[in-house]
Design a protein around this nucleic acid. Structure first.
Lengths: 151, 151
DNA sequence: TTCGATGCAAATAGTTTGCATTCTA
DNA sequence: TAGAATGCAAACTATTTGCATCGAA
């Protein structure tokens, strides 16, 4: 599957592959950095930097928030981590290798993650109409979910 | 034209109507509040709170930033002002009564404002596919503009 | 043993809140 | 003249940066 991305794309289907990619990039695999990766791979949803620093509520050792931010940026440049904004509030971070795009409800705050190909029809319509190549993996489609729209 | 909105909708095609709406709502039309409205109506594009407080680079008297934020919130609740996020960076504010939705380029930072009806086809496709009623007036469609996609 | 990465603290950006004072209705 | 709104300062949230120390390669 070819997904258009901004920046480098490294296939990282699992933690070991991600760590190998990091190692072979010339960067160091420090304890703090490994922890960020482990936490993101252990989570089933995008996390805030603070949740990562808190060790996902105690499931992992806690780490320094500034270092978490620095590592998220580094890992992001390598394409191992992506950054999501699902409305107001802090930014969220997710492991790469499992590409997702998002629809977020501005009323209830819930969001839905979908595979990029599920949005290709929408993407194509937007491109035909406006010439924009839309990506909903960083900023989602925002609106009212079925529940909130039906109220 | 009927545009679905979240919150109250007050038709405010011009400054005088907006001020009348404010007055008749029971709220006071103070100097600072009038200034926020005047500045937003004088601008042809969404502004940051800071730009409003700066009086649009000297074209209006400057005002207190905290009061600007308070007034933007008040005017927003009345439906006289809307709030836009066009990517990273500070939030932007625009007069209501001239409904717009946005497409933003995540590479060059430029954005395009379009009439809501121009996005109805996209909106309908998203609704048929996902059950979401999409709105791109608060968070835009983000992607690559034609120029940046063609590079 | 080098230089990349860390952890702490301080700085920064954007926004909100507390409170005594001012001004609108 | 009551209480809504202001202006200033301080707090707050999210994030970034400086710097001395530490540790992976």
């Amino acid at each position: 599957m070819t997904v258009s991305r901004i920046g480098p794309t490294i296939a990282a289907p699992d933690l070991a592959t991600a760590e190998a990619a990091l190692r072979s990039s010339g960067l160091r695999l420090s304890a703090a950095r490994r922890l960020v990766l482990e936490t993101l791979f252990a989570a089933d949803r995008p996390l805030t930097a603070e949740q990562i620093a808190d060790g996902l509520d105690g499931r992992f050792p806690r780490s320094d928030l500034a270092s978490v931010y620095r590592n998220l940026e580094t890992l992001g440049k390598l394409g191992l981590v992506r950054h999501v904004h699902l409305g107001h509030g802090p930014g969220l971070y997710a492991r790469a290798g499992l590409e997702r795009e998002y629809l977020a409800c501005e009323r209830c705050g819930r969001f839905e993650a979908v595979a990029p190909e599920d949005l290709d029809e929408v993407r194509d319509l937007v491109e035909r109409t406006f010439g924009y190549r839309a990506r909903f993996g960083h900023f989602p489609i925002v609106g009212l979910c079925a529940d909130c729209a039906g109220e």
